[in-house]
Design a protein around this nucleic acid. Structure first.
Length: 392
DNA sequence: TCTGGGGTCCTCCCGCAG
DNA sequence: TCTGCTGCGGGAGGACCC
C-alpha cells in the first residue's frame, strides 16, 4: 500500500490490500492495527522514484507509435493511425513485453476507437488478465455494446461521485444505459462535458487528444505536521511555497501575474474554531522571480492571517501564467533586469549542489518542520547511494 | 496524535462598456 | 439624458481527473 504525503491517506492498494476492505483515500491511522495484523507492506509516496520509472515507460511506449499523449504519471494514450494492417492484439502484447522486460512494471493495454472506449478496453484487460493476456481490443460493435453493458456507471471515466448518484437515481446503472439517454437530458444535467463523453462512448471520437501545454496554474500547498498559531511560522512556510512556485515557473519558462495564498485550520478538529481564507495579490508585471513572488505571498498572508486559530494547512498558487516570450510589461514601473540572471544563477547552484543550497531570508532556514515519511522506499534509480546491489 | 497534493474545464453571475 | 440590450472578462463555485 502506498501512502500520501505526510503518510496521511492510503492512495494506492494492491489487490490483496483491497481484499482487506481498505478504501481508497482512507486515513492511514484508522487502519494501522489491521495492517499490522495482516502484515501489510506500507510505503510512503516517493515521487522521485515514480517520476523516473514513469519517464522510462513513456519512452518505451513512444517507440511503438509516433503519436503519444502522456496523460498522467501512469497512463498514456497512443494513436495507431495507419496501423490498419497490423494485428493490434499481437502488437499490444509486444508493447507489454517490452515495457515489462525493461522496467519490471506490469502494464495493461486497451485498443478502441475513442479515448473513453480505450479506457474501458484497458479496464477489461486489467480485470481479466487470464483471458486477455493484459491486452484487450474492442474491434467491433458487438464488443463495444457488451463492454458498455458490463461497465457500472460509477466506473465510467468522467463520471464522478455526484454524477453517478444522480444517474443511479434516474435508473442509469451501466455505461450502456448512459449512452441510451436523450442528449437533452445529458446536456441539461451534465453540461457539454457529459455530452462529449456520451458521444465518445458511442464510438464517435469527441474527446480529442491534448497536446502538451503550459500549465495555467502552479501550486505548492502542504498540510503541516503540527498546528501553527504563529504568523512567523506561517510566513516561513509560505515563503518556501512561493519559492517552489517560482522554480516551477522558471522551469517551464513562464511568468505569472497573480499570487494566491490560502490558510486553513484543521477541519477534522471540530472542537476547535475553524478558519479558512484566501487572497489573490496582483503583481505589477509578470514575473517568475522568487523575490517578487515571496513578497506578494507575504503581503497576502499578512492580510488574511487572524490571531487565535490553529493553522494546519497553507499554500501558494500562482496564476495568470504567460510564457517568457510574451511578457506584458508595466508602462510605469521599470523592469528589474537583475532578477533574471540572479534567479538563473541560483537555480544553477541548486541543481549542481542539490536543492536548497541557496535560499532566501524569509524561508525556513532552520527548517524545524518535517514531513512524515516513515516508510520511504529507496530512490533506486535517481540516487547513486540507493542503487540496487546485486549479490551472488 | 495521526485525515494528500496538483491540476482542468464549465457554468453562473456580476460589472462594465458600447 | 435615460433605458434596455448585448458581449466580454473576471471571480466564485462545482464538477471531474490523476
Amino acid at each position: 500500500m502506498v501512502l500520501s504525503n505526510n503518510d496521511g491517506c492510503v492512495i494506492a492498494r494492491s489487490n490483496e490490500a483491497k481484499a482487506l476492505g481498505v478504501a481508497m483515500g482512507a486515513p492511514y491511522f484508522h487502519h494501522k492495527e489491521l495492517f499490522k495484523k495482516h502484515n501489510v507492506k506500507v510505503v510512503s509516496s516517493n515521487y522521485a522514484l515514480y517520476g523516473d520509472m514513469s519517464a522510462r515507460v513513456m519512452a518505451i511506449l513512444s517507440r511503438f507509435s509516433p503519436d503519444i499523449e502522456v496523460y498522467s504519471i501512469d497512463e498514456a494514450f497512443l494513436r495507431f493511425r495507419g496501423f490498419e494492417r497490423y494485428d493490434l492484439q499481437k502488437y499490444g502484447l509486444d508493447i507489454k513485453r517490452a515495457v515489462e522486460r525493461s522496467t519490471g512494471l506490469p502494464i495493461s493495454l486497451g485498443f478502441a476507437p475513442t479515448k473513453a472506449l480505450a479506457k474501458l478496453a484497458n479496464r477489461i484487460a486489467k480485470k481479466y488478465p487470464e483471458q486477455t493476456g493484459g491486452v484487450y481490443t474492442m474491434e467491433n460493435e458487438g464488443k463495444r455494446v457488451k463492454a458498455l453493458k458490463w461497465l457500472q456507471i460509477e466506473d465510467v471515466w468522467g463520471i464522478g461521485r455526484q454524477y453517478a448518484r444522480m444517474l443511479r437515481e434516474n435508473k442509469v446503472n451501466t455505461a450502456l444505459d448512459f449512452t441510451n439517454l436523450p442528449n437533452e437530458f445529458v446536456r441539461d444535467r451534465m453540461s457539454v462535458v457529459g455530452l462529449r463523453l456520451k458521444r465518445d462512448l458511442e464510438g464517435r471520437e469527441t474527446i480529442q487528444p491534448e497536446e502538451a501545454k503550459e500549465k495555467k496554474a502552479i501550486a505548492c500547498t502542504r498540510s503541516f505536521d503540527e498546528m501553527y498559531t504563529d504568523l512567523e511560522q506561517l510566513r516561513e512556510r509560505v515563503s518556501t511555497f512561493a519559492s517552489v512556485c517560482g522554480r516551477k515557473l522558471r522551469n517551464q519558462k513562464s511568468n505569472c501575474e497573480l499570487v494566491n495564498v490560502f490558510v486553513s485550520s484543521n477541519p477534522f478538529r471540530e472542537d476547535l474554531p475553524q478558519y479558512y481564507n484566501s487572497i489573490s495579490v496582483r503583481l505589477p508585471y509578470p514575473t517568475s522571480s522568487t523575490i517578487h513572488l515571496t513578497k506578494a505571498a507575504i503581503i497576502g498572508l499578512d492580510r488574511i492571517y487572524r490571531k487565535g486559530y490553529k493553522y494546519k494547512k497553507a499554500g501558494v498558487i500562482v496564476m495568470g501564467i504567460s510564457p517568457d516570450t510574451q511578457r506584458q510589461l508595466n508602462m510605469f514601473l521599470p523592469l528589474d533586469h537583475r532578477q533574471g540572471p540572479l534567479m538563473k544563477a541560483i537555480d544553477r547552484l541548486n541543481i549542481m549542489n542539490g536543492h536548497d543550497l541557496v535560499r532566501f531570508g524569509g524561508m525556513d532556514l532552520k527548517r524545524k518542520w518535517k514531513m512524515n515519511r516513515n516508510h520511504l522506499s529507496p530512490n533506486y534509480t535517481t540516487r547513486i547511494e540507493d542503487i540496487i546491489k546485486a549479490t551472488s
